[in-house]
């Protein structure tokens, strides 16, 4: 699989996939998409990167250990639910905040934070699995 064409084109594909994954995640509340799908797309991107430039290099490119990303995602999702406790509502009651930026309105909400948490968990976990399995390469019993 390690052809020169693949190695050349892989970073490009990976970049597009990562951007696309974030887009899919963020639009998920109103159109097909969401944290689960976005996370899977991003994880696939990392898997492709790992195949192309090697898992060690892919890990370096990520800067953060993927499992740490996943852990942060769980934390973020739980935290988004905790926010509602400050308003005196039950755990995980959603809070919406519409920011008016000139022409457009940007909705910020706790479900969105939650969805980003889901994204990070799925992305981190599956990227870690993929890189872990690739990293084991060459090691025969």
């Amino acid at each position: 699989m390690n052809t020169i064409i693949f190695r050349t084109i892989a970073p490009l594909i990976v970049a597009i996939m990562l951007v696309f994954s974030v887009y899919v995640c963020l639009r998920g509340h109103n159109e097909p998409g969401g944290g689960f799908i976005g996370g899977l797309i991003a994880a696939s991107a990392i898997a492709i990167l790992g195949t192309a430039i090697g898992p060690a290099a892919a890990r370096r490119a990520l800067h953060i250990d993927p499992m740490n990303i996943a852990g942060f995602g769980v934390f973020m999702a739980a935290f988004s639910g905790l926010l509602s406790l400050f308003t005196g509502s039950p755990f995980m009651t959603s809070i919406w905040l519409y920011l008016n930026l000139g022409d457009t309105t940007v909705p910020l909400s706790t479900p969105m934070v939650f969805d980003i948490g889901v994204f990070l968990v799925v992305f981190g976990t599956i990227a870690a699995i993929a890189l872990g399995l690739e990293g084991d390469g060459g090691e025969r019993s």
């Binding site: 509340h29 159109e31 969401g34 909400s109 479900p111 969105m112 969805d115 889901v118």
Partner: peptide
């Protein structure tokens, strides 16, 4: 405040 009902169920109703 979400049009994708499946996603709303996942992140809000059944969060």
């Amino acid at each position: 405040h979400g049009a994708n009902i499946v996603n709303v169920i996942l992140v809000d109703y059944r969060g």
